[in-house]
């Protein structure tokens, strides 16, 4: 995997406004290829066809929440090792620790810096693959 650039990101988020902001940030500003899903089921259904390099996912969502979605994706062999970044409005330390235990390489807190996010994800990716 070494040396491969970050290109395709699966983004799961139930808030349409935030989806729009994220599209603007990652697609327009960061130039990434983004698949946006509004819930866990869509994500699980559409991810295999998209083959993302990284999964960026909200924690609290109606129905299937972030951790449950990640668990479902991890059960598929192709996503067993895909880096996951959670994005959450709950930033209490024990919450962050729990998410890291689920295998997240990072937890980004809301509100995030839309201008800096593409660079940050790129840096995270670089340090993860190397």
């Amino acid at each position: 995997m070494s040396g491969r650039a970050l290109k395709r990101i699966l983004y799961v988020e139930d808030e349409i406004d935030i989806q729009t902001v994220m599209r603007m940030s990652l697609e327009k500003l960061g130039g990434f290829e983004l698949l946006v899903c509004s819930n866990g089921h869509d994500a699980v259904a559409q991810a295999p066809g998209f083959t993302p390099d990284m999964i960026l996912i909200d924690v609290m969502m109606p129905g299937m929440d972030g951790p449950a979605t990640v668990a479902a994706l991890r059960r598929m062999d192709m996503f067993a090792a895909t880096p996951v970044v959670f994005i959450t409005a709950k930033v209490q330390p024990q919450e962050v620790a729990r998410l890291r235990e689920l295998g997240a390489i990072d937890v980004i807190s809301k509100p995030f810096d839309a201008m800096a996010l593409p660079g940050y994800l790129q840096a995270l990716w670089n340090s993860h693959v190397n």
């Binding site: 808030e15 406004d17 935030i18 729009t20 902001v21 994220m22 603007m24 940030s25 327009k28 500003l29 609290m60 409005a89 709950k90 809301k110 509100p111 995030f112 810096d113 839309a114 201008m115």
Partner: peptide, 21 residues
Amino acid sequence: HELRTPLTSINGSLELVLGNV
């Protein structure tokens, strides 16, 4: 959580607009 969620949109939008995106 409830306060941060709308703030995420507001903040993000403003940053992008002000960032001339």
